[in-house]
Simulated scan of single mutants.
Amino acid sequence: MLIRFVAMPSDQAAAYRAGADDANGMPPERGISDGDGIPCRHCLQHVRQGEPYLTLAYRPFPRLQPYAESGPIFLHAEECTRAPESDVLPDMYRGGFEQIVRGYGHNDRIVYGTGAVVAPLEICTHAYSLLERPDIAYVHIRSSRNNCYSCRIERG
């Protein structure tokens, strides 16, 4: 495995489901999926039509600092199985729209010049090329349309 997709940790997902405040200090909002474009950041699958989900502000960084972006995400409102760490592109990206793929340094800050809008089938190749660089610690995927955090990619 050269790269691995890393979903939201299960303890964080469980905390939000139990009502923990999000990155903005607000409780997650609840909704019912219409079956269109509600990707869960824990199982990396779409929330099916009729299933409950949460919308919340998420900041996937260990501490506050100027580059610690937050953004809206979706999460199954009921327990789901965390996506296994794998080098296989998660289904939620297949057939979708372009994503922002961006490298971060060991200090959890954006490495300038690494961000690119990438077609779904090019995500693995682009992420791998970034992770070959010693100054890149990990990569984030974000929606190119809404800037929502999607998942993290690390070296395999």
Rank of each mutant, 00 (worst) to 15 (best):
V88W: 10
T125E: 13
G71F: 00
A83S: 03
A7M: 02
A23T: 10
Y93E: 10
H46V: 02
G105S: 00
H76I: 00
V6P: 04
I100H: 06
R4T: 12
R30W: 07
L121H: 14
R102Q: 11
A57E: 14
I100E: 08
A77F: 03
F61G: 11
F97D: 14
L89R: 06
V101R: 08
R152P: 03
P62F: 13
N107W: 07
N107C: 09
N107F: 13
F5W: 03
E69R: 15
H46E: 13
V88E: 12
I3Y: 00
V88L: 13
L131Q: 05
C148Q: 02
I32M: 07
T55H: 14
Y104P: 02
P72K: 10
R152Q: 04
G156M: 14
Q49D: 13
V117T: 06
L121F: 15
F97Q: 14
E29L: 00
F61Q: 12
H106A: 01
H42M: 07
P52N: 11
N107H: 14
V117W: 08
L75S: 02
A83W: 09
R94Y: 10
Q65M: 15
H126E: 05
E132K: 15
S86M: 09
M26S: 06
R30S: 08
C124P: 00
M92D: 03
E122C: 02
S129F: 02
A18K: 08
V118F: 03
Q45R: 08
V101C: 11
D36C: 14
S86Q: 08
S86W: 05
I110T: 11
N147Q: 11
E29I: 05
E98R: 02
A13W: 08
T55F: 10
A14D: 15
I38Q: 02
P27H: 04
E132D: 15
E85I: 07
Y67M: 13
I153W: 06
